[in-house]
Simulated assay, not measured.
Amino acid sequence: MDAIVFYAPHEIGLQSIPLPPMTPTSVRVATKLTSISAGTERMTLEGRLPGMPQLRYPLIPGYENVGEVIEVGADVDPAQFQVGDRVFLPGTVRYEGFFSVFGGQVSESVNDAKRPIKVPAGISNETALLLALGATAHHGIRDLVAPGTRPSILVLGQGIVGQLAARMLTQYGAEVTIADTIPFRVGLGEADHFIVVHQEMDIPSDSFDVVVEATGNVSCFDTAVRALKKRGHLRSLGFYEDIRFAFGPAFIKEIRLDIAGEWDAADLAATLRFLADHDAALHQLITHQLPARDPNRAYTVALRDPECLKIALTW
């Protein structure tokens, strides 16, 4: 099997490594597509990752893997998995001689049958790549729109998490405004109002019940506080090394700040339904496709091209 390997910060390669042996409770998956996380994989490639102060190399990155089951262990219930099933893997097992964050950038894998998530027939392989970040977005917005209300919500940042969060909030009945500094991303978005940000003052002050911070850029917290109404709610969907913002304005407005964490089974189920209902429309969010055999080019495009919203690597 082949794997994309980070040998050290800023050093990427493709290497052939042994496939772990099958067990009676495992399934073997041939990878069709993977994607690159602009947050976790970027930070890992740069040698830093919150919660893991001592990253160790060489490591295999990735947690967005869509593949096909090609072998099933003898003890796996046929109702759970059969050969030919399509699955999403939010990472794979550890491989001898390599560390893992989270091991998804591989051409093939052997996993305990509890790990893969079956992809329903109504979801394409490309759209299935959005499952983990879609569940992350859903976890961050699922409680923001109470029944019978229409809160005004600003989604800062139109990367994949921001794109999906805005679409879900619109579906749940919020009045949604999206904002980003990249016109291309704003143009792809779905919302009631659209802002291409050239300077901070392009975002109106004291205007929103809720701000969803989805840029992953800690400098946007002050912008979010300024945009909120009195006693507004700031929900963080990003992944940061630390958080800093001016306390005074937040104190005066009495804002509520909370941080969305890891998705759960309810988010996963809701996101699978959302992806199935919007499969065709979500295809446009996969803006680039490149072969996994050239990982240096793929990571350069994914992490440096501002018009690369989401990349699919073919295996």
Rank of each mutant, 00 (worst) to 15 (best):
H283Y: 00
Q289N: 14
F6S: 11
G238C: 06
A113M: 15
F88C: 13
V225M: 06
G39Y: 11
C220S: 08
V210H: 01
D143S: 08
A270F: 15
E200F: 00
T23A: 05
F184N: 07
D258T: 12
L285I: 00
E108V: 02
V69C: 04
V218A: 04
L89T: 09
T271Y: 06
I141W: 00
D242Y: 13
F6E: 13
V210A: 03
T177E: 01
H138N: 09
A276G: 12
E175G: 02
Q15E: 12
E213K: 00
Y57L: 02
E41V: 08
D85L: 07
A113W: 05
I255S: 10
T25P: 04
T287Q: 08
M22A: 03
N65D: 14
D75L: 15
V196Q: 03
R244Q: 13
P116V: 10
S236Q: 07
R48C: 03
H139V: 03
M1I: 06
P9E: 09
L49R: 08
F239C: 11
E96K: 05
F99L: 12
G248W: 09
T40E: 08
Q163A: 04
F88M: 04
V83E: 08
E262N: 14
I153P: 03
A250L: 07
Q105F: 07
T136C: 14
A250N: 10
S100V: 15
G103A: 10
V301R: 06
P58G: 01
V5A: 11
E200P: 00
E254T: 08
L268W: 07
A265K: 09
Y95W: 06
M52Y: 14
G73T: 07
L19M: 03
A113N: 13
I252S: 13
V225F: 12
F102Y: 14
G261T: 10
L156I: 14
S219N: 08
Q199A: 09
G103M: 05
P78M: 11
M52T: 14
N125S: 15
Q284F: 01
L49V: 06
A224E: 12
P18V: 01
G39E: 10
I60E: 14
A276Y: 06
R185N: 10
L130R: 05
A266K: 12
T177G: 02
S109V: 05
I17V: 09
E46P: 04
G67R: 08
R231E: 12
I255L: 11
V101S: 15
A281M: 06
L154Q: 02
A146L: 04
F6R: 05
S26T: 15
F99I: 14
S35P: 14
G51D: 10
Y172A: 01
H10G: 14
L59I: 04
P116K: 10
I117G: 07
T149Q: 00
V106A: 13
G248S: 07
A179W: 03
Q199F: 01
Y240V: 09
L188T: 05
A128L: 03
G13H: 04
A8W: 02
L14D: 11
A280P: 02
D277H: 06
T149H: 00
E190K: 03
G140F: 02
I286E: 11
F81G: 10
G67V: 05
K230Q: 04
T177D: 02
T92A: 07
E96C: 01
V93D: 06
E241P: 06
T181C: 02
Q80H: 13
A276L: 07
V145G: 00
Q289V: 15
